[in-house]
Design a binder for these strands. Structure first.
Lengths: 349, 349
DNA sequence: TTGAAAGCGCTAACAA
DNA sequence: TTGTTAGCGCTTTCAA
């Protein structure tokens, strides 16, 4: 910890008034130039621009938004599960890319599975008058957002649909993807397949479980109750649950893990038991380095970048006044075989 | 893609005026209640709060900021390299956690190594009158930020110090960490160690190279010019550069990779060449799943969460009026041996 | 303890 | 083409 000199004296920000005074024009002319409105002589445009640069003028978007008839702030909010999770981070990045092309800034926040945080974040962003919100719904009910939408805030949901409210939503093909992943394990000859997922109250987990159940039923496979594990909120819990399954009286010969952290937890447990080459595994959502493990982890990959791009495009269409019916967009998942999902059932079971 | 009914009619947001009218009090009384100012009878507080809930009132923070003497927006900005990179994402999350405890929202943006993007993001956030900025400096010079700071925007830099400007900075122990990682390889018996890093214009890369060079010099080791590779901007470039090194006339027996994506690229190249058990590797910055590879990847781990927490605390201290000298805080890195860094030089070389 | 008036920086509406 | 005036929603200042 090294020290350096401290802050220098303050100098207040220049306003349009200051710029006008320096350029020798009226306030309104500055406003016209700053907003690129037509009908200002090139001479004045130049004088104003020079004055603006000289004073390091930054238009006050808060004041603009306050006065404008549409009230736009050129800011949108992102309410995601956890900004540190690779899936959320990729989503944020994708929304940012679209927003940037429109001069829109992005506020972001993490819910962390705490229902009240979702409402707190929405309230915080609403107080800042964001033009729109991209939400990964986590609370049991999103009908409270109807009021915000009526007040002019556009809404798009990602990863899973909202409850108690109709709205544009962009999701991955959860059920179909989970079905495909499960079928892949069935095709490899497995009968005892366990399903592990995160919080069950969230529809992605439910949809993926449905896909698993559908595939098992279609193949005429039954499964044990205890092979259906939900509510795994951390990687450590997933690891422990997997270890318990592997050590149980009727261990599964294959695992389907429904979320990225659950997948990693399961891999750790398999390694710890030395079973990574005996027990098959297919995970939902891809992970960096998954292809370099031995065996590589077979996954049903999502496309968070596409989901984010589509969500942002929907959002800005609404902000621009699109009043067409709400749509549910489903982004295809893709099965990526890498080894772990192609392991045949071990003879010992 | 399924369709649902479209948006319902708009209802404008309630203002303090509306709340005042409904509660039968003056505007100022509402302001007092909303801001938790003392000196309002409990009776009126209750009436105002009821009216506010009934009208779904959301205080307009833009208007508040415009009028308040301190001009605070309760919003800070984060200017990072790439929000999708795990290091940046963890940093954002850590800053968010501190900001949340203060009711402050976080704007975030990616520079993507485009120098002009850094200034664009700063300008975008300045126009939104953020109270402070956490910046991962990427452009060659940050002196332009002096004007923003004079105008009241607090600044903290992360990951590397700014150029042309003295300011609070929080960094990892880049030089010492790289030295330790290199010494680890030297201790394993390596003489021909290659260094691979990302963009050389960024001081983290330079500092880490310095650590490498120092360790080699201290051990009396020389190294070939061509074993010092910089400017690797993508994982693919890192992979190609590693492959070239491995196939060269004088292949290294060990690699020190100075950034997370460079590390992954190098691992891919080693695998492709089947040399992951022959050529040693130590990487700077940790990666998810690195411990599950075979061999596990030995890394010099950074602590982005601590860096983010410290940066946020510095920032809020400045926002709160701290005028003490600027400090440089160094967050320790930690060598995590996992296998790849403990490989002895192969006899064949 | 409560309220009235002024004005933050900007744009809408209108006038010259 | 340029400028004047009013007022967005809120807090400050001052008065009752």
């Amino acid at each position: 910890m090294t020290t350096l000199p401290g802050p220098e004296p303050a100098r207040p920000r220049a306003t349009m008034r200051d710029v006008a005074a320096l350029a020798g024009v009226s306030l309104k002319t500055v406003s016209r130039v700053v907003n690129g409105e037509p009908g200002v002589s090139t001479d004045l445009v130049e004088r104003v621009e020079r004055a603006a640069v000289q004073l390091d003028f930054r238009p006050n978007l808060g004041a603009r938004s306050l006065r404008r008839s549409d009230g736009r702030t050129a800011t949108v909010g992102l309410v995601l599960e956890n900004l540190a999770n690779p899936f959320s981070a990729a989503l944020l990045r994708a929304v940012e890319d679209v927003a940037t092309t429109r001069g829109v800034a992005v506020l972001a926040g993490s819910i962390d599975r705490a229902d009240e945080r979702e409402r707190q974040l929405v309230a915080a962003f609403a107080s800042r008058r964001v033009d729109g919100l991209v939400v990964m719904p986590t609370a049991a009910d999103q009908s409270y957002l109807m009021l915000e939408r009526r007040a002019g805030m556009s809404l798009v949901f990602v990863d899973r649909p909202p409850h108690g409210l109709a709205a544009d939503t962009v999701v991955a093909s959860n059920t179909a993807g989970a079905r495909e992943g499960t079928e892949h394990l069935i095709a490899a000859g497995h009968r005892a397949i366990a399903f592990l997922s995160d919080v069950s109250g969230i529809s992605t987990g439910q949809d993926r479980r449905q896909g698993f159940v559908d595939a098992m039923a279609a193949a005429g496979r039954s499964y044990r109750r205890e092979h259906l594990v939900t509510g795994l909120t951390t990687m450590a819990e997933a690891e422990a649950a997997t270890a318990a399954l592997l050590g149980s009286e009727h261990p599964p010969t294959a695992l389907f893990t429904a979320q990225n952290l659950v997948t990693i937890g399961a891999v750790r447990a398999l390694r710890a038991a030395g079973l990574q080459h005996q027990v098959a595994l297919v995970g939902f959502d891809d992970v960096l380095l998954a292809d370099l493990l031995e065996p590589g982890i077979t996954v049903v990959a999502q496309d968070p970048t596409s989901i984010g791009h589509l969500a942002a495009q929907r959002l800005f269409a609404r902000i621009d006044g699109d009043t067409s019916p709400y749509v549910l967009e489903v982004v295809a998942t893709r099965l990526v075989p890498r080894g772990s999902g192609e392991i045949a059932p071990s003879q010992s079971v």
